[in-house]
Amino acid sequence: MTSRVILVSPAMSPSLRQARFYDGDSLDDTGAARARAAAGALPAPARTVVAPGARCAETAAALGLDGPRTPELAGLDVGRWRGRTLDEVGAAEPEAVTRWLTDPDWAAHDGESVRRLCERIGRWLDGVRETDGRTVAVVEPEAVRAAVVHALGLPAAAFWRLDVAPLTATELSGRSGRWNVRLGRPLE
């Protein structure tokens, strides 16, 4: 049995454009238009799942994908930093930002640690490995990072070394207890 997972990052939104911690905003006009233009770029899935955020749901709809919102695929909970830019948080809490970027267990922003996110996404990915056929999941960029960290058995500290561009597909294929990864194909 071969499992295939295609992780699709959301199209551009104001928070992505402004390097602001996600606060539930919708796609911007350019992002929505690019997602609509990419409809049909993915192979037909056996199943589709969508992270609970608005920009993931809107990206899925624009791509012509329909699937349940799946809470365990939510992006990283950044607690009190939600809605703020990285520059704002860095100016107000420089030591906290440094710790957040270097310690995968740190979560003093009253949110979730990177390690917990990687574990949560990893549990979901392990469950998908037991299914046959292709799963398309429209998820936040940090969920893509966490899936790659888990799939390749990387240390959680590698999380920040992975860049995920908007509206790209990262493909995982699993068999014999392991995953292979094809990173960041733009959807066009």
Rank of each mutant, 00 (worst) to 15 (best):
H109G: 15
R99S: 13
V97L: 13
A96R: 02
A96Y: 00
R99W: 01
T102S: 15
G133I: 08
A107F: 07
D103K: 00
S113F: 06
R99G: 02
R116D: 15
V97F: 04
R120D: 05
R129W: 05
D103V: 07
V128S: 03
E130V: 01
A96K: 02
R134T: 14
P104A: 09
D105F: 03
A108R: 15
E130H: 11
A96I: 00
H109N: 14
A107S: 14
V97D: 05
W124P: 00
A96L: 05
T98A: 12
R115D: 05
A108S: 13
H109E: 09
T98C: 10
R116A: 15
L125W: 07
V114E: 12
G133K: 06
A107C: 13
T98H: 15
T98V: 10
V128N: 01
R134S: 06
E130C: 04
V128C: 09
L125V: 12
R99E: 11
R99K: 05
E130I: 00
A108F: 07
D126H: 12
G133E: 00
W124Y: 12
R99M: 07
R99P: 06
L125T: 11
D126P: 05
R99T: 12
A96D: 04
D105P: 08
C118V: 12
R134Y: 05
W124R: 03
E112D: 10
R116Y: 01
D110C: 12
D105L: 07
I121E: 02
W124E: 00
R120W: 01
D132N: 14
W124N: 04
T131W: 08
T102R: 12
V97R: 01
